[in-house]
């Protein structure tokens, strides 16, 4: 890659520039800052769409009473049962139980607190979910 070919397409990193390796006119490598490249922004956005779609599905199930608010926070933090169980220091079985509205309702305050800490939320925040997800990272497919 030549220095003048280093793409400067602003993507999802905002004003941040990353280092790329490119050649100057003398054929020597240089560290060239780049705002980004559309070619990699496309799959990054694609990955976010996939994540957000999943979060939306879970949120719908929370609203329809099939899943507990914990399920929403888990999905919104890109976690699965295995990872959340690790963070909360609980068994997967118990986490699964708390993902159901019944199990969540019966959560003792100290366990509620433990989950809240994982997501850095207050216990009340943990029990609430937004009406719809924040889609600031998604794109409309052209």
């Amino acid at each position: 890659m030549k220095k003048q070919e280093v793409p400067q397409d602003k993507g999802l990193a905002g004003e941040m520039r990353e280092i790329t390796y490119a050649m100057n006119d003398n054929g020597e490598y240089e560290l060239v800052p780049s705002y980004g490249w559309e070619v990699k922004t496309v799959p990054l956005k694609q990955a976010w769409e996939e994540i957000l779609e999943g979060v939306q599905e879970v949120l719908d199930k929370v609203h329809s009473g099939k899943l507990s608010p914990l399920a929403y926070h888990m999905a919104a933090h890109q976690m699965d049962v295995k990872l959340l169980a690790k963070y909360a220091g609980l068994s997967r079985f118990r986490v699964k139980h708390h993902l159901k509205p019944r199990g969540f309702k019966r959560l003792k305050p100290e366990l509620l607190q433990r989950y809240a800490q994982v997501f850095e939320l207050g216990p009340e925040e943990l029990a609430s979910v937004p009406s719809r997800i924040n889609r600031s990272l998604s794109i409309d497919r052209e």
Partner: peptide, 9 residues
């Protein structure tokens, strides 16, 4: 396409 996107990333 998702798998392909992951390789590119």
């Amino acid at each position: 396409l998702l798998c392909l996107g992951q390789v590119i990333r």
